[in-house]
Amino acid sequence: MTALMKRGIIVSCQALPGEPLHGGDTMLKMAAAAYQGGAVGIRANGPEDIAMIKREIPLPVIGLFKRTQEGSDVFITPTRAEVIAVIEAGADIVAMDVTDRENRLEQVKELLACIHAAGRLAMADISTFEEGIAAEKLGFDYVSTTLSGYTPYSPQQNGPDLALVKRLAGALTVPLFMEGKVARPEEALQALDAGAKYVVVGSAITRPKWITETYTSAVSSWLNQSEAEGAPKR
């Protein structure tokens, strides 16, 4: 097991089915680029990508397994089957949904025990302050703000939830990760300044479709406004 040793940037290398970069060794190449760029860890989804990255990249790997379940909103490593798959793939840290919905805080006790029995570390992906506190009490080794803005009862905002980071940093004793909607280096620095030990960046680095859309959307808005201003007045 490769432990996280120093503070810094974790790069989330994920592509879901239907996205242009899904499949093959694309995420391995993304992870290699992140390693060369100075990342201190990789976050990866699914046994295939986790195993491939773990074999080739000398960085700690945070593994998860996104799987939808009928009638449930929980999809980040939801059951024991996904936990075992992530462990067997070689992840150093297993990340899962630890939100206060669908009796999840009770369900994760068994999953947490499974992770620790395998000699791995466990990360709680939470969306609120109360969930972060509950995760530490349950025995999770890391807490991450991954799901802030993705549960209906957490703040819905465009940028990272720095207020949550600051509040949790003052209350937790386990390492805190800032993840979610970090789009610029300045926001990563703000997260560190607020007390995060690590900052996870995904879309802004590893999703070129999303990156392109941020540019094309801005340009389209500018062009539409320019055309409207330049149109002859009636």
Score class of each variant (00 low, 15 high):
Thr2Leu: 14
Ala3Ser: 13
Ala3His: 06
Met5Arg: 14
Arg7His: 14
Val11Ile: 10
Ser12Asn: 08
Leu16Val: 09
Leu16Lys: 06
Leu16Arg: 11
Pro17Cys: 02
Pro20Leu: 12
Leu21Ser: 06
Leu21Lys: 05
His22Arg: 01
Gly23Arg: 09
Gly23Phe: 02
Asp25Cys: 03
Leu28Ser: 02
Met30Ser: 11
Met30His: 11
Ala31Cys: 07
Ala32Arg: 15
Ala33Met: 11
Tyr35Leu: 09
Gln36Glu: 14
Val40Tyr: 06
Gly41Trp: 09
Gly41Tyr: 09
Ile42Val: 14
Arg43Ile: 04
Ala44Thr: 06
Asn45Lys: 00
Pro47Asn: 02
Pro47Cys: 00
Pro47Gly: 11
Pro47Lys: 11
Glu48Asp: 14
Asp49Leu: 03
Ile50Arg: 04
Met52Cys: 14
Met52Glu: 13
Arg55Tyr: 03
Arg55Gly: 13
Ile57Pro: 08
Pro58Thr: 11
Pro58Phe: 10
Val61Phe: 13
Gly63His: 07
Gln69Leu: 15
Glu70Gln: 13
Ser72Asp: 09
Val74Ala: 02
Phe75His: 13
Pro78Ile: 00
Arg80His: 11
Ala81Phe: 03
Glu82Phe: 10
Val83Ile: 10
Glu88Met: 04
Asp92Asn: 08
Ile93Val: 15
Val94Pro: 01
Ala95Cys: 03
Asp97Pro: 07
Asp97Arg: 04
Asp97Met: 02
Val98Leu: 02
Thr99Ser: 09
Arg101Phe: 05
Glu102Pro: 11
Asn103Cys: 04
Gln107Gly: 00
Lys109Arg: 15
Lys109Leu: 12
Glu110Arg: 13
Leu112Gln: 05
Ala113Ser: 12
Ile115Asp: 04
Ile115Phe: 05
His116Trp: 01
Ala117Trp: 02
Ala118Phe: 05
Ala118Trp: 10
Ala118Gly: 11
Gly119Gln: 10
Met123Phe: 09
Met123Pro: 05
Ile126Ala: 01
Thr128Gly: 02
Glu130Asn: 08
Glu130Leu: 09
Gly132Met: 04
Gly132Gln: 07
Ile133Glu: 14
Ala135Thr: 10
Glu136Lys: 06
Leu138Ala: 15
Asp141Leu: 13
Val143Phe: 03
Val143Ile: 12
Thr145Ser: 02
Thr146Val: 01
Thr146Tyr: 01
Leu147Trp: 07
Gly149Tyr: 07
Gly149Ile: 03
Tyr150Ala: 00
Thr151Lys: 04
Tyr153Thr: 13
Ser154His: 10
Gln156Gly: 03
Gly159Ala: 14
Leu162Gln: 08
Leu164Cys: 05
Leu164Arg: 02
Leu164Gln: 05
Val165Leu: 04
Leu168Glu: 04
Ala169Trp: 12
Gly170Phe: 06
Gly170Arg: 12
Val174Lys: 02
Met178His: 07
Glu179Ser: 05
Glu179Tyr: 02
Gly180Asp: 05
Lys181Tyr: 09
Lys181His: 14
Val182Asp: 05
Arg184Phe: 14
Val199Thr: 08
Ala204Pro: 12
Arg207Met: 07
Ile211Trp: 08
Thr212Gln: 15
Glu213Trp: 12
Thr216Leu: 13
Thr216Tyr: 11
Ser217Ala: 15
Ser217Leu: 11
Ser220Cys: 12
Ser221Asn: 10
Trp222Leu: 13
Gln225Cys: 00
Ser226Ala: 15
Ala228Asn: 10
Gly230Trp: 06
Ala231Cys: 06
Ala231Tyr: 13
Pro232Met: 08
Pro232Trp: 10
Arg234Glu: 09
